[in-house]
Design a binder for these strands. Sequence first.
DNA 1: ATATAATCTAACCAATGTCAAGTTCTAAAC
DNA 2: GTTTAGAACTTGACATTGGTTAGATTATAT
Lengths: 209, 209
Amino acid sequence: MSSSKPKASTKSYHHGDLRSALIQAARAVLYEEGTSKLSLRAAARHAGVSHAAAYHHFKDKTSLIAAIAVEAFNELQAKRNKAYLQEDLTKLKRIQKMAEVYIEFALENPQEFRLMFLPEFRREDVLTDVEKAGRQSHLQMIELVTALQEEGTFIEGNPESIAINLWATFHGLATLMLDGPLFRNAKTQEGSTALITSAISHLFYGLVK
Amino acid sequence: MSSSKPKASTKSYHHGDLRSALIQAARAVLYEEGTSKLSLRAAARHAGVSHAAAYHHFKDKTSLIAAIAVEAFNELQAKRNKAYLQEDLTKLKRIQKMAEVYIEFALENPQEFRLMFLPEFRREDVLTDVEKAGRQSHLQMIELVTALQEEGTFIEGNPESIAINLWATFHGLATLMLDGPLFRNAKTQEGSTALITSAISHLFYGLVK
DNA sequence: ATATAATCTAACCAATGTCAAGTTCTAAAC
DNA sequence: GTTTAGAACTTGACATTGGTTAGATTATAT
């Protein structure tokens, strides 16, 4: 929660770290009032500053939302690394773990997760900040796949293509559980892990006899 | 494009089929002005009627959007049936075809596709119209899986779980191609079909050697 | 002829994004 | 230690837009 550099004074005219306070505030609004109520003004209100203060930290409304997405991507990555380092697992189990972390994150932070994949954050010509923030995980997954190929566990083939396949499965499950027909299954822990486990197993060992 | 029952007179006071005209108008606005500009007023404007006229056909703004989602689900289903009936394919190829149709629909109708999976259209307690409209495809897929199990092609196991897995793969690919890191791959026909083909093949035959 | 559905005009009100101009604090220069 | 420049905020105002309701008006259908 608390960041490192700035001294967040409690009551001074200058906030100390309004930028990240606004991001937090915006996230809170997202949950307390819903996506449609998220506005620069609402975030400012929630952070206890004037409605125009945000313009010293964000170019416009979209920038604030992008900042939320970036922060969320970073949190996901952190969570991923934590799981990755903590556990002493086979590489195969590691992949399962990645899926669990991904979906858990989506279910625990649904509003942020949706923002992470808004179309306005992708541009043909340039890599946006949001894209950059998401890129790391992708590369990490490719590495893992490559390692699995080298140790002879996985089939040959373009590792990126396989990584994409894995991600698509995670992502598809996550989104269907969040906003699709699987949202009822996602209400219980058992329901969701069952879905994950069977999906991973199918993908690992195939559907065709 | 033109529906069956009502006579869409061109210039009378009574429109004839304003309801579906508004849906069409709203879809047009979606593409011409973007999601954020979609409003009841904009739809009415585009349909050439007064801004209050919509209230005789839709309870509120959300209902109009829901109607778009329902219509889109129906179109997807129709497209699916068409592909399903036309082609004389093995059941396995049929699944590949379903994936292609699904993703093609998403890429050709990105705006509608996004609306089809808005969280506000799912409720814990009741089946919403949008949900009902999406349900058919799901059942169809389960049937197909069951058939594949019976003919001994697919592994045993809960057919629904397998169908979910397939859907998640399609859906994950579609969403990542639309609003995720794969959106650059989706720009060309070859790029997208390559992704689909390899994903299906991986899922059919497994990633583990 | 009459009831009623479909449409229109008008108006209200609540928001929001954004800019402009003034204030208050911080920090660096002297 | 004082001055001073500039950054961080505030208040106020503008223009836009949108959802929604109320009360006519016009067409359709019985």
